[in-house]
Computed example of a mutant assay.
Amino acid sequence: MRKIESSIDRRRITNRPIAIILAAAALGLFASTAVRADDSVGTVTQVNGSAQIERGGATIAAQQGTPLKLHDKVTTTDGSVTMGFGDGSSMALSSSTSVEIEDSTAVNGQNVPSRVTLISGDIHTIVPDKTGQPHSIEVNTENSKATGPSPNQ
């Protein structure tokens, strides 16, 4: 019996799965790098009137869904804006208010603001404690007030 020889290069066939695995691994590394490179700390969840975000020397309009990044300065002129964060907290800025997101920390794998400076105006923020109970904090340039369940409960 005569043996039939194939014209297909077997090295190419056996290396194809390796090439696919290497390509998938490279894509996985790229995707995880892209996720880590995302420096957002929250998003604009609501806008009434006009508000701007100063970022890296540029000014952009604050719109629902706009990501918030470290060092952003958010300013309202004749309206209000609410910002939401990955830990379940939120911050509402009233008219003629300006804040800057100065620092962040990771909470459950998500970056959230850890220091926000009130430059001028009024803010209302809701921050959940470790048990998920909300604590409400109202701050303006003249007064501050914190409400919510006692932290000793």
Results as ranks from 00 to 15, higher is better:
Ala37Ile: 01
Val107Phe: 06
Val107Ser: 12
Thr117Gln: 14
Gly148Cys: 09
Gln46Ala: 12
Arg115Trp: 10
Gly88Arg: 04
Val99Lys: 05
Leu93Gly: 01
Thr77Tyr: 11
Leu27Arg: 01
Leu68Gln: 01
Gln110Gly: 04
Glu102Gln: 14
Glu138Ser: 09
Thr131Met: 06
Ser94His: 11
Arg16Gln: 11
Met83Val: 10
Leu68His: 03
Asn108Thr: 03
Val99Arg: 03
Arg115Ala: 09
Leu70Ile: 04
Ser32Pro: 03
Arg11Pro: 01
Ala106Arg: 15
Val74Arg: 00
Lys69Leu: 15
Gln64Lys: 14
Gln63Arg: 10
Ile60Arg: 13
Val116Tyr: 04
Gln133Trp: 09
Gly42Leu: 02
Ile123Ser: 04
Asp129Leu: 13
Asn111Trp: 02
Ala61Asn: 10
Arg12Leu: 06
Gly86Asp: 01
Thr33Asp: 03
Leu93Asp: 00
Thr82Met: 05
Gly56Trp: 01
Ile20Phe: 12
Pro17Glu: 08
Pro17Gln: 13
Ala51Val: 01
Ser7Pro: 03
Asn140Leu: 02
Val81Pro: 02
Val99Asp: 03
Thr43Trp: 03
Ile60Gln: 11
Ser94Val: 00
Lys69Trp: 12
Ile119Tyr: 14
Phe85Arg: 02
Ser144Glu: 09
Asp87Met: 03
Ser90Ala: 07
Lys145Ile: 03
Thr66Val: 09
Ala34Leu: 14
Gln110Arg: 13
Thr105Gly: 03
Gln64Pro: 08
Ser98Glu: 11
Arg11Cys: 09
Ile137Leu: 13
Val107Met: 06
Thr76Glu: 02
Ala37Cys: 04
Glu142Ser: 13
